[in-house]
Amino acid sequence: MTGHLDSLPAWAAWPAAALLLAGAGLTLAGSLGLLRLRGFYERLHAPTLGTSAGMACVLLASMLVFSVLQSRLVIHELLIGLLMLVTTPVTLMLIARAAIHRDRQEGADVPGQASPERREEKSKE
């Protein structure tokens, strides 16, 4: 099944293997965080490992292997990287805002509308 890799020289195979393992390891560490961390706002940090360095390592490995195998520059993986870089913050911010909105409505123990001064004024009243 991996027969097409036979023509890959050793100088490309080693870094590709290291990048793959590093990327998958970081992604797994982040996803383990989904299980281990207590509380929603802590778990919000878990996916960012996979979307930053984890994804970058896997994409770099893919670029390296395909570029060497086809002996031309294969960089269309950059497209996925660019897309994830721009979209992840948007989704995480949307989720965080939705969560804090819901928590405030339910009266949970979260900071109120983002101004400490205004909060102090309120507590004095």
Binding site: Y41, H45, T48, T88, P89, L92, M93, A96
Partner: peptide
């Protein structure tokens, strides 16, 4: 947000 460890809320 892209930096793990900090999240914009």
């Amino acid at each position: 947000t892209a930096t793990p460890g900090t999240a914009w809320v």
